[in-house]
Design a protein around this nucleic acid. Structure first.
Lengths: 197, 197
DNA sequence: ACGGAAAATGACCTTCGGTCATTTTCTGAC
DNA sequence: GTCAGAAAATGACCGAAGGTCATTTTCCGT
């Protein structure tokens, strides 16, 4: 069998990925070089490019994996929500866990803006596996929307407010707390999506 | 007099700045190299660094100038607002003009995230001359807030929603129109800052 | 034990922001 | 007009970055 070689390759990828997760998590995407990732894992720089075509590609893979983990925890909880307000609160519990996961929220943000430089990356980043996407949120709140306001827009406004808050947070602006934003986001969702809103 | 040399230096700066404004406006901050800026203006690369210490510094100067221009148009109009809703509408007229000014809003956004990598830049970017700042908006709406909700937070939530929208726009997400966001931002401000909100 | 394939290596390429010794241009005194 | 010193402009150079690739090392089936 050639299984053992595949195994080896797979393990190398895992090691490089773990190294990258650690370095990205502490220094961010741009500030972490490919050479650092490989050095830290005990490989030569060239080895990186046997497994990924670019630093971007590795990052996308990490994002995909992280978001999948997040969602596996989140979705069952949201499914139990009885109304829009409950659904929104559960979504924001989830957003808070992301914010508390080292500084990954800032790194997501950094990469999101970085991806604006490439049409290919932009398209990829609009896919829900790579984003805290409005589409995802739309699906989560859809059942609880009582007006004809599009659930997609409720999701998108929520994401916008959240990501705008990330910018404030990244810059170290102290004016808003996450509770402020949560309250605002929920108020906004209810105003648009609840009866008597 | 040594006036003529100062004049020359000033003109060189103007030419380099005009070149930079054009290139940043069409390609963004990161994608525009210093060499391109100088080449396009007919100078050598080294000349750039006689006038600015870094590409960042030039960009800050451009931002400062642009924001000053915007504000000169905006502030007199907002001063005439009779209530919170009118003030918010005038603010959003202004935000729309920024959005319609080539792709500068995206470039502001890009540089904002870029500045997260430097403590010095972060501090600078929290100054209102470099930001579509919450402080500024707070001052603009302060007189019209009828509740004890802090005007700073009204301003910050507005900025967050706006900048979150910029991210959507930069990625090419089509879900939200600027009218959607304007309506949401005004609804949010009124909910927090108007009586019976 | 051997040969082919897969994995790993690191020197090398280009690009970029930034530096600096050198050259060119300007100005004011004589 | 000339000349010296100052200011402006130059471009070769540096180090770090992402990415490439010919070469070497390791692995595996025969």
């Amino acid at each position: 069998m050639a299984k053992k070689q595949q195994e080896k390759s797979r393990q190398t990828m895992d090691e490089l990925m773990a190294s990258a997760v650690e370095l990205f998590g502490s220094k961010g995407f741009t500030q972490t070089s490919v050479a650092e990732i490989t050095d830290h894992a005990g490989y030569a720089k060239g080895s990186f490019y046997r497994h990924w075509d670019s630093k971007d590609e590795l990052f996308l893979q990490i994002v995909e994996r992280k978001l999948r983990q997040y969602r596996e925890e989140r979705d069952p909880k949201v499914a139990g929500a009885g109304n829009l307000e409950e659904a929104m609160n559960i979504i924001w519990d989830f957003l808070e866990t992301i914010i508390n996961d080292r500084n990954w929220s800032s790194i997501f943000l950094e990469f999101t803006i970085h991806s604006a430089h490439s049409e290919i990356l932009k398209k990829l980043m609009n896919k829900s596996i790579y984003r805290l996407s409005n589409q995802i949120f739309a699906d989560l709140v859809r059942d609880h929307v009582q007006t004809d306001f599009p659930p997609e827009k409720i999701g998108a406004l929520n994401t916008a407010l959240f990501e705008g808050f990330l910018i404030h947070r990244t810059l170290g602006t102290q004016v808003l707390s996450i509770e402020d934003v949560r309250r605002a986001a929920i108020a906004l969702a209810l105003a648009n999506g609840a009866k008597n809103g």
